[in-house]
Design a protein around this nucleic acid. Structure first.
Length: 499
RNA sequence: GGCGCUAUGGUGCAACGGUUAGCACGCGGCCCUUUCAAGGCCGAAAUACGGGUUCGAUUCCCGUUAGCGCUACCA
């Protein structure tokens, strides 16, 4: 382990979508691999035929791609390596490290060992009761032969030493050790011939030359079992790094009832992958100082297992949203263009000319809009009017800013004077509007707000004059005139309502 | 029930024996202002509890409590 680049893996099982906990684990593995110049493998742990849903694999892959976690090798599927595990289990059985078990599989739900009758039996008896020691462990050759002849399904269990301790090194929790007497004779190979998780991970991690196992802390307690397997196989265990879990606001494990938990739903909502990454990276990891906003390159540069915390973290959506807004404002506009382009394509607003001839205009529009954006979907949402003439007028905005009787007349005059401007720029528009306000004896704000609603349909929008410049003279004037009847009818209906 | 892990404001993290316990999100106020954001400034808000060790504990040790995890022929 002293030489060579690290090899790590992310090993989800397709029993659900890629959730934020898995995403964070994947991210840490990826950041670690990139920081160290190592290799990241993707392995699908699909040995549980009952719960496994093959169709979910694609979604997990997509989630990882959206997240920007790119793997170097794989995906490998455990379901295609079944013979390897079977052979390994047989080897363990032959060497005596494992033993054949003919017990009937425990019912899934009845795993509770209840603590009512605490009979003071001898130690051995208690362990048998607690299920730590399998009764098949010391079956005689004759018994074994008999069971086999009866055709009873056979599983292979690991013969856990009855005494001593099993130690391993954890990069975040430090040196760990467990009493072997507390470890049950766990199953390696099920009676249906499929490997359990414990066997599968170890065999694969050895085979795939994994050097660092970075995974959720829910695996911490079971790690000694895996170390036992490594030892029985004469293989050196990797360095483990268990990362704390992510909990919901109620401090329980994150699940559906906490709302969105799949990364796909965050993508759909309009979060930026980089913002999501930044947020996730800081959930259970810290660079050691007060840095918050860190672009991905900086994350890679600074990531270290030493900065991983040991306490479970609560997923704070408000902070995620804050990161998202930061990523709309701070990076160079160019970084944002592809994201906005994708969004406009999704919503059917995209114009090919923005990719080439009008790229500069597109960039300027995005730059103008972005300070107010919270989600990428805002570009086709409230900012829609920048990309198409086909937009609606927000009722609340009209209500709020179209209530002065003189508006229709003034807006008409404004359209005329704007149309007459020889030069179309911020200051010219500004001067024209203020001149009219002065002439009419009204505050500029009255005209500014009413005009904003008239040309983009929204109250919440960028500053007016820059908006007019971006929209262009023709569209600005046309929209102003188009809005006149709407302002008029809004006023008259309001008047009727009032009288 | 057993075993284990963890414990700094509401949340995420700093402080790895000596700081007026710091930063960020969120929250409240003020400023800015052309709507709404952004930004700037200010503020409220924490070392779970009890014992030790030490000249000195957020920090080290023990206990309590709480949360979480494992205890499946799930992963």
């Amino acid at each position: 382990m002293t030489t060579g680049k690290p090899r790590v893996r992310f090993a989800p099982s397709p029993t659900g979508y890629l959730h934020v906990g898995g995403a964070r684990t994947a991210l840490f593995n990826w950041l670690f691999a990139r920081h160290e110049g190592g290799t990241l493998l993707l392995r699908i742990e699909d040995t549980d035929v009952e719960r496994n849903k093959p169709e979910l694999v694609d979604g997990i892959l997509q989630g990882l791609k959206w997240l920007g976690v790119e793997w170097d090798e794989g995906p490998f599927f455990q379901s295609q390596r079944l013979e390897i595990y079977r052979a390994a289990a047989e080897r363990l059985l032959a060497s005596g490290a494992g033993f054949a078990c003919y017990c009937k599989p425990a019912a899934y739900a009845g795993a509770d060992s209840g603590g009512e009758a605490e009979s003071e039996g001898d130690d051995e008896g208690t362990k048998l009761q607690k299920g730590l020691i399998c009764p098949c462990r010391d079956l005689s050759a004759a018994d074994l032969a008999a069971k086999q002849k009866e055709g009873i399904p056979r599983a292979i269990r690991f013969r856990v030493p009855r005494e001593g301790v099993t130690k391993f090194e954890d990069a975040v929790f430090g040196p760990r050790e467990a009493q072997n007497s507390e470890i049950e004779d766990f199953v390696l190979l099920r009676s249906n011939g499929l490997p359990t998780y414990q066997l599968g991970v170890v065999i694969d991690d050895i085979d795939m030359r994994i050097t660092h196992v970075i995974r959720g802390a829910d695996h911490l307690s079971n790690t000694p079992k895996q170390v036992l397997i490594y030892q029985a196989l004469g293989a050196a265990p990797p360095i483990f790094a268990h990362v704390p879990l992510i909990l919901g606001p109620d401090r329980t494990r994150l699940s559906k009832r906490h709302g969105a938990t799949s990364v796909g739903s965050y993508a759909d909502e309009g979060f930026l992958p980089e913002a999501f990454r930044n947020f996730l990276a800081l959930l259970g990891w810290s660079p050691g100082d007060d840095s918050e906003f860190m672009r991905t390159s900086e994350l890679i540069e600074r990531f270290s297992l030493a900065g991983v915390s040991r306490t479970n973290a609560i997923f704070d959506r408000a902070k995620l949203e804050w990161f998202n807004t930061q990523y709309f404002q701070k990076p160079p506009v160019e970084d944002l263009l592809p994201e906005v382009e994708a969004e406009l394509k999704r919503s059917g607003l995209w114009q090919e000319r923005w990719a080439a001839a009008d790229r500069a205009w597109f960039a300027r529009a995005v730059d103008l809009i972005r300070p107010r954006v919270r989600f990428v979907t805002d570009f086709s949402g409230w900012a829609r009017a920048f990309f198409t003439d086909d937009f609606s007028y927000e009722p609340e905005a009209c209500e709020k800013f179209w209530k002065d009787e003189r508006l229709p007349a003034m807006l008409g005059k404004l359209a005329d004077s704007l149309a007459a401007l020889p030069d179309w720029n911020h200051d010219a528009c500004d001067a024209a509007l203020r001149a009219l306000a002065t002439a009419e004896g009204v505050k500029a704000g009255l005209l500014i707000n009413a005009t904003r609603v008239a040309i983009v349909g929204r109250a919440v929008a960028p500053p007016l004059f820059e908006t007019m410049v971006t929209l262009g003279k023709d569209r600005t004037v046309a929209r102003l005139r188009r809005a006149l009847p709407m302002v008029q009818s809004k006023l008259s209906s309001a008047g009727h309502a009032a009288s």
